[in-house]
């Protein structure tokens, strides 16, 4: 089969360009991580950005990092379209999994609150007494 490439002939040229690309990806990943940690500290110190926005940014940046690892480090970007599709299309199931299960968890919490008040068991406070009496 003709796909048994051995890597002998190609990539003799462009050695530096390809190594440069690897390091560029590294710096991008590092910068994103530092940005995430910086943002987390900003939130701890000042409370901004608000938690919901913060978490959305974290998830967005996580997906961005995942893209760089898969596309550059795992070379998926340079594979042919057939392969990219056979890998990525099944992963679309995750969109449904995440929506369905998180919504399920949330509705369960609401059900317990509305249909069966008192569950989960009344909060036992460790830090300070709750003033509900």
């Amino acid at each position: 089969m003709e796909h048994t490439h051995t890597g002998v002939a190609h990539e003799q040229h462009g050695h530096d360009a390809s190594t440069k690309g690897i390091w560029k990806t590294f710096w991008i990943l590092l910068a994103i991580t530092i940005f995430e940690v910086g943002l987390a500290f900003l939130h701890l110190e000042t409370g901004i950005p608000p938690k919901l926005l913060l978490n959305s940014v974290f998830i967005g940046l996580t997906l961005l990092k995942a893209f760089f690892i898969v596309a550059e480090f795992m070379h998926l970007r340079n594979e042919i379209r057939n392969l990219i599709m056979t890998i990525l299309v099944p992963l679309l199931l995750f969109i449904w999994f995440i929506i369905a299960f998180l919504a399920d968890g949330d509705s369960w919490k609401k059900m317990r609150k509305d249909l069966s008040p008192g569950t989960p068991a009344p909060a036992v406070h460790v830090v300070n007494e709750e003033a509900h009496h």
């Binding site: 995750f94 999994f97 299960f101 998180l102 968890g105 949330d106 919490k109 989960p120 909060a123």
Partner: peptide, 17 residues
């Protein structure tokens, strides 16, 4: 891993705190 992380997320969404 996705299943593990999603079940973690489900339980977290289910918890009041």
């Amino acid at each position: 891993f996705g299943a593990l992380l999603i079940s973690y997320g489900t339980i977290r969404f289910m918890s009041t705190s």
